[in-house]
Amino acid sequence: MSALLAIEDYHLAIPTFDGPARVLNGIDLALEEGETLGIVGESGCGKTVLARTILGIGPDRAERKQGRILFEGRDVADLSARDWRGIRGVKIAMIFQDPMTYLNPLFTIGRQLGDAIAAHARAEGQARPGRAARRVRAATLLDQVGLREPERVLDYYPHQLSGGMRQRVLIALALSGKPRLLIADEPTTALDVTVQAQVLRLLRDLVETLGLTVVMISHDVGAIAALTGRVAVMYAGNVVEEGPTARVLARPLHPYTQGLLAALPEIDGAIRRLSGVPGTIPSLIDPPPGCRFHPRCPRATALCAAERPAMRGADPAHRVACHHADLA
């Protein structure tokens, strides 16, 4: 069985005044139908750019330097707007980060859901559903994401809803086309802690009942742990470690992953700063040679500055890009 989504050696650069920023630097990832993949890393590591690039809504001036993104075996990296029709929203959908800015403030929830429903019907070659039909379907979707009184919510404007409700609306919008692949970009980051838990629970229920294939982007290891079966750790445009979520979290191989996990808040509420990871992420315009992590790495040697480590692992399911990883 071929993968639903396969990213092969993908390089992306964004031109800036100081030169091109190499934002994605040879990404290799594959996702089978029904899998849930988490992508975790600090802000600025390229995870959001990667998520948007999958959907063809990445940065305007970004240039693909190399590599492919295969969805259902077809390269989607340079599709025209016309070819995207029938994929966006219908086969691949996205849940966005900030529920305030990603809803149009001037239209009611019902209008925005209804337009998406109509667009999906057209993409699948059906007649445009009537007003009443769109409304019924929209209300069903709102009900599905756990909003009470969906009929009333339809007539609300975004600013009249709470953050958690808006996030549920965004999830309903993403589900409205019955997508095969769902990309969730930091779906809980902008929410209060209590609401985060509710939204995570909702997402987990939806994944289970609808059998969704999910890519979830987050810097929140807890959210990743709660929702995904597999995780990829990104650092400065590279995937540095990939494996089953439980194993990676329990026994991280890459020094960066180890630092990231060590920085997790403890149960008692004390937050240890990124103790294992001193310094900040490097410039993507002029990245360090060899392993991009070596200037911050406690195990760095001359080899790390000279040569970029390849992904390797004793178990093909859990691989790491580090010259000095303890694979035993």
Binding site: T16, F17, D18, A21, G44, T280, I281, P282, S283, L284, I285
Partner: peptide, 8 residues
């Protein structure tokens, strides 16, 4: 936006 220059 260019990331901040981190030249040591």
């Amino acid at each position: 936006m260019a990331p901040p220059d981190l030249a040591p």
